[in-house]
Design a protein around this nucleic acid. Structure first.
Lengths: 410, 410
DNA sequence: TTGATTATTTTGGCGTCTAAAATAATCGTT
DNA sequence: AACGATTATTTTAGACGCCAAAATAATCAA
């Protein structure tokens, strides 16, 4: 149920919608904020004064002489999120590879650093300490203290448990249940969010395209693996424990092809890079899946398919069928408004899509499948980072700055 | 995004949580309401005075001499929802069979009526008019006017479209896209909700057991068909158009058994009554599915299985496997906290469950399946009705009475 | 320089909440 | 039967947030 309401709640909520408007629509004058939020000018004055006082937003200095908008009347004074209000750090972990990005409160990237930190063979507890140390060095190296960072977010392939702050299972780690957040929180005193990478792509999509803000959008990532993020009513859905869904490890065919996860018949075992490759090369479905695929090998395979090589074409078709049935099952369960395909796997979309659409048509009642929009987005490698940053900043807006000023104790 | 907040919103929200507390916990004194809601006694006095003024709640007269609670101090005065505040009508439509139930605002059943109205062969537009007429007769027959009814809710197997107020597809109708709500709204002037029956079971579960109010619960109905209702964060999820999910028509095996819907390989084509029967009787998967199964035939089949007949045992196992893989796929997509089995099909649970649990284990990463609680509830035929009534009353609480008094114009 | 125009702030009033004080309705005890 | 103790409810006074309207500020145009 919802909470009781009082004047405190009113102010918190209105602070939040003001911050949301500034984050989404960029710099706005008070009068524009009033129109965007539905609040009266008087209230905007009061709220913005408080936010300025709290050093969360600021008035934008108009560059010399740029004030001439050609309009009469008192000129507007735009407000913006104050870059130095706080910072966030987004971290992406792949096999033996950790990328860290520091941004200011506006989301501008201030620093980026890629480190080779061994993940796969790391012992369980050691990695967390290692990462905490790297993060500390990264932050202080930019002339900031840990108190200047409000949140740290970690994106990773596999199943993350945001409650315990550990990685339940990931292809980047041999070990299971690798704890991460506790070591970082202990060393830096900064709250940590751990999330699945496909969910972070969904976050990115959500903040770049408001078409996904209503209803349900499923973002399906294909590439080295297959993942999915769900946007339900404008919020990215994180399962029971924040674990996200495991679309890639949904069963496609009982007793089917061998998957990286050790099971049989997962969607991923037909549609991930390694699966397409082994199928095209006639290696059979029981070959132990490779863990790292050189992107050029996929490019070469696509070229072979385009030149008409039957085995290559069939491999992509099989991938499309597995994805399509997976999407059909998703539609039967959730009836989403949109399905968005993303990730490097979409480079071969022309080879995959016909079989994919056929499978959707075969796999679900037409009354449902007809309503669903299936589309795709161009994949930039930075989508995961961008999404993580946005998720972090939104969390700061809502959980921290809607309450009052950030305490910079210590 | 959320709305701007003002004092009006505060009062609306607090009115709502007061009504929620009374609906859920029964009659409460003002002081108890204060504890239940977190509001101060002063506010409760103000809010309850308004609700009494609006004739939505009332003070409960203590029966003669029953006041002796043995306690000192001023005795409490309990408040209750006022039965006559308004009424709702729940309707359940099965093949050629319509049941209507009238309840007061407390949810007490005042009248019930089962009518044989032809559905399956009815022409598209005719049925809505027919039903509207029956409803009008039912309501006036109880000495009420249509203005005394705040909502009418219709539960039906199949896909309902609550936006247009029509039945997209249902086994109870030969026709597709049967419009219902418009005719009723036109004749009676009462808002109509149309919903899938499995969703209504979920509503019933939600209001009877608060364990389902957090996280995700999937309620799976088995019997004449297979359906599912989803409870997400304390609310029953109605797909894009209120269509609900079509778990029963999720594909289990490509090119598999023939389903009532005309497709192949749906879960229902293995796990519904008709599917189990045809499988046990060795009729093959291509036999056109029967539409109505006499319950005694299922009872007989269960007896045969218990006596050790191999074909009967295998049929139930096949049903369990199909359901289990369906649930495994559901878990991969949504990672729910609980899966609840309901419906007449659960009478054969002992025959189904081993295969079902095996399939779940085979079909999804253990890290996920281990966290999910799979349970079942005893099936009462009235669960659908009870759920519909609760959904209607909650809608009235929130959408009507949180705003102000109900206008009884005309 | 003056008036028109538009943005922002100030003022005054309203609604809701809460804490604390007042009142009401009992029971127990003398 | 009267009085104090006890608990429930209402009243009172003060705080905070919102809004409408008035006042002020900062510009352009004539």
């Amino acid at each position: 149920m919802s909470e009781k309401a009082d004047s405190d709640l009113v102010r918190r909520q209105n602070r939040r919608i003001v911050l949301d408007a500034l984050r989404q629509q960029g710099n706005l004058a008070r009068i524009e904020l009033g129109r965007a939020t539905g609040l009266s000018p008087a209230s905007i004055t009061a709220i913005s004064a408080q936010l300025i006082e709290d050093e969360i937003i600021q008035e934008v200095d108009v560059p010399f002489g740029a004030a001439l908008t050609g309009k009469r009347g008192r000129p507007i004074v735009r407000l913006s999120l104050k870059p130095a209000a706080t910072h966030v750090v987004a971290v992406k972990i792949s096999i033996d590879d950790v990328v860290m990005v520091l941004t200011d409160f506006q989301g501008k990237i201030l620093a980026e650093q890629a480190s080779r930190i061994p993940t796969y063979e790391s012992e369980q507890a050691g990695f967390g300490r290692h990462l905490a140390k790297a993060l500390h060095g990264f932050i202080t190296g930019q002339g900031l203290g840990t108190r200047d960072v409000a949140r740290i977010g970690i994106a990773i392939q596999g199943v993350a448990d945001n409650r315990s702050g550990s990685i339940t299972w990931s292809p980047a780690f041999r070990a299971r249940n690798v704890p991460l957040a506790p070591a970082i929180v202990e060393r830096l005193g900064v709250p940590v969010m751990i999330a699945n990478d496909a969910n972070m792509i969904a976050e990115g999509l959500l903040s770049s395209d408001r078409a996904h803000a209503s209803g349900i959008t499923a973002v399906i990532f294909t590439g080295y693996g297959v993942g999915m993020g769900l946007i339900i009513n404008g919020k990215v859905y994180h399962g029971a424990t924040g674990a996200a869904s495991e679309f890639g490890h949904m069963n496609h065919l009982p007793e089917g092809a061998l998957c990286r996860c050790g099971r049989r018949g997962c969607v991923e075992a037909y549609a991930a890079d390694y699966a397409i490759l082994r199928s095209a090369d006639g290696k059979g479905n029981d070959v132990a899946p490779l863990s790292a695929i050189d992107p050029t090998r996929m490019t070469a395979l696509m070229a072979r398919a385009h030149q008409g090589e039957a085995a290559a074409i069939a491999a992509f078709e099989t991938a499309g069928t597995a994805l399509g049935f997976g999407i059909a099952r998703l539609i039967a369960i959730l009836n989403p408004d949109r399905v968005v395909l993303a990730g490097p796997g979409t480079r071969a979309l022309d080879l995959i899509e016909p079989a994919l659409r056929r499978a959707i048509a075969d796999g679900v009642v037409e009354a449902l499948s007809r309503q669903v929009i299936v589309e795709h987005v161009a994949f930039g490698t930075d989508m995961i980072m961008r999404g993580t940053i946005n998720a972090l900043l939104r969390a700061v807006d809502h959980e921290v700055f809607s309450q009052g000023p950030l305490e910079k104790t210590g």
